[in-house]
Simulated scan of single mutants.
Amino acid sequence: MKKITLAACTLLLTLMLGGCSVSVDGSNYESVAPDFDIKAFFNGNVKAWGIVQNRSGEVVQRFMVDINGRIENGVLILDESFTYGVGDGVKSRVWRITQTGENTFEGEAGDILGTATGTSHGNAFNFRYQMDLPVDDTTYEVSFDDWFWAFDDRTMMNRSYIRKLGLVMAEVTIFMQRQG
């Protein structure tokens, strides 16, 4: 009887934790148009509008980002400036993104732990990285699973899943538009 109860509890816990996870399969976007070219999209000025929602779906941050992108010696540099309407957060970030293969990239920024890895999937682009994320008076080491989807050559949507111990703790939704 104890073994059956333990097995039932384990199955229930597995199903509950699986429901808290999000998994995007990049291969679903390989043949979807238009292709998303991260270097072409961000080479210039980009305006972004976004929100962060906690696990309950409550908007805990609303922000705008001005992104000044440029390519120097083959490296894509994104100089980001943030302003907040709700909540508070990082004021600026500078990404340095290098193409390492036909569809692969690596990126670094001052507040990112280690190196971010990126993969292009036709219409989509996936960026994964670790970060010490400040929340109130403490900091949490979290993983970002960052997905970008092109609408056209000027408009893009970004969805980030922020995980702690494998569970999605918050989600970020951002719309971006090339300027000029």
Rank of each mutant, 00 (worst) to 15 (best):
M64R: 10
V65L: 07
G69N: 09
G74N: 01
V75M: 11
D79N: 11
D79A: 04
E80S: 06
T83P: 05
T83G: 11
Y84S: 10
G85V: 14
V90C: 00
V90E: 02
K91L: 08
K91F: 07
R93G: 01
V94W: 14
V94F: 14
I97T: 00
Q99L: 04
T100K: 11
T100S: 10
T104Q: 03
F105K: 01
G107D: 01
G107N: 02
G107F: 04
G110P: 12
G110K: 12
I112E: 02
L113I: 14
T119C: 00
S120P: 04
G122Y: 02
G122P: 03
N123E: 08
N123G: 06
N126T: 13
R128W: 07
Q130R: 15
D132M: 12
P134V: 05
P134E: 10
V135R: 06
D136A: 13
D136W: 06
D137Y: 12
D137M: 12
Y140Q: 14
E141Q: 09
V142F: 05
D145F: 03
W147T: 10
W149G: 08
F151Q: 12
T155W: 13
M156E: 14
M157W: 07
M157C: 14
R159G: 08
S160Q: 12
S160P: 02
Y161V: 00
R163Q: 13
G166H: 11
L167P: 00
